[in-house]
Design a protein around this nucleic acid. Structure first.
Lengths: 217, 217
DNA sequence: TCAATTGGCATACGAAGCGTATGTTAATAG
DNA sequence: CTATTAACATACGCTTCGTATGCCAATTGA
């Protein structure tokens, strides 16, 4: 049999990624010693260099794994409501919530860009951006939002979400900060909405309307 | 006389910051060797550790300098038009343009957060955010925008700007990408506008209206 | 079944780079 | 005029990374 062989190899790969993910997520990329976390997986740097080339290669693998998980979660969330716009809003909210998780924040949002360069150039191509772009494309086809470039809007929205999340995460009062951020975020999102009257869509996206305070300061 | 003495010290500090700024901006923080760039300033690491404690301390000093420059530029831009809203839009545009500069992108936006943590916690407190927050505060007092938290909006907007800039900078066709990004950005910004009718402000912010395509896709 | 070879992984080695501890010199204070 | 402080340079050790090398198990082909 040649199965156990392949399985062992896959297992060491998985163990390395898991150990690195743990170390990167807690200590950060720069402070994580390859000797240390390979040892914690019962291996040495030899295995690491064999499978991933170098430290950056391992970081890529870790990020690819996390990115896939994030994308899967987003897809589930955005598909749940029957209303497309509501699905998009939920997707953004989920994105913010994910960006609040320390592991994602540190590995994907902080160390990743610093070590691997701009995320838009990554092989994983930030699958989340794609997911969001597709959602916006559908909303545009539907006539719910204005004629903006879906990818552009997706990038802007994700950028705003991301910063909101970092702001919240490092706030003294995350609860209060979160409230303020989400409210402002929804107001901003309304800028995308087509306000020329109801079009193709029988039920207009009213989901977020009640939450917005339309009275001036 | 004790003037030359103080001047010499200030000069070495300035030389170190300048050399580090050059090295960090081109090679990046991690790849910049302290031995190398201190030598390029005609000094050694001894001077560096004496004045800045460690490598991170020097990065802080460099970022503080750049941040001050950015803030000054933003203040000038936003104060130019008599229309507050137009001033704000110009400020955002200027922010994007600054974020396109490689030195700012690398030092302040990429390596800075990775090494020093979230910018909202920096001593310089991202002066740019403050500037933008103040602009939004005035717009809210004026009734031009909705009753959102100014700081929250400022952070969201700066986050979106920042990502737009990185997207543009790494694009194959920066010109085309920039057009798409700016258009989507202005649409998003409109979400902030108070659309309940004209209020305190006699001339409504019409500056960006003509640029928006209101027809659905 | 039995070489031969490949590939997974460990060990050993060399090269930087960082931080600290220790000078050395010049300026200020008393 | 001496003593002390402050601005730097020099020297050392420690950690870490990357590569080169070696070993052993597993697969392959006859």
């Amino acid at each position: 049999m040649h199965r156990p062989r392949k399985e062992m190899i896959a297992e060491t790969r998985a163990k390395l990624i898991a150990a690195a993910r743990q170390a990167f997520g807690t200590l950060g990329y720069a402070e994580a010693s390859m000797d240390d976390f390979t040892a914690s997986a019962g291996l040495t740097r030899g295995a690491l260099y064999h499978h991933f080339g170098d430290k950056k290669g391992l970081l890529q693998a870790v990020i690819a794994e996390i990115d896939a998980e994030m994308s899967a979660r987003l897809k589930v969330v955005s598909a749940k409501p029957d209303n497309l716009w509501q699905g998009f809003v939920d997707e953004c909210t989920a994105y913010i919530e994910m960006a609040l998780e320390p592991e994602i924040q540190r590995i994907v949002l902080r160390d990743g860009p610093a070590v691997l360069g701009d995320p838009s150039q990554w092989p994983s191509q930030s699958t989340c951006i794609r997911s969001m772009t597709e959602s916006l494309q559908r909303l545009r086809d539907e006539g719910t939002i204005l004629a903006v470039d879906p990818e552009a809007a997706a990038r802007l929205v994700s950028g705003a979400s991301l910063h909101a999340a970092q702001w919240i995460a490092n706030s003294n009062d995350p609860e209060a900060t979160s409230k303020k951020a989400v409210k402002a975020f929804k107001v901003l999102l309304e800028g995308l909405l087509n306000r020329t009257g109801r079009l193709h869509q029988p039920d207009r996206p009213s989901a977020i309307q009640p939450e917005v305070d339309r009275s001036p300061a």
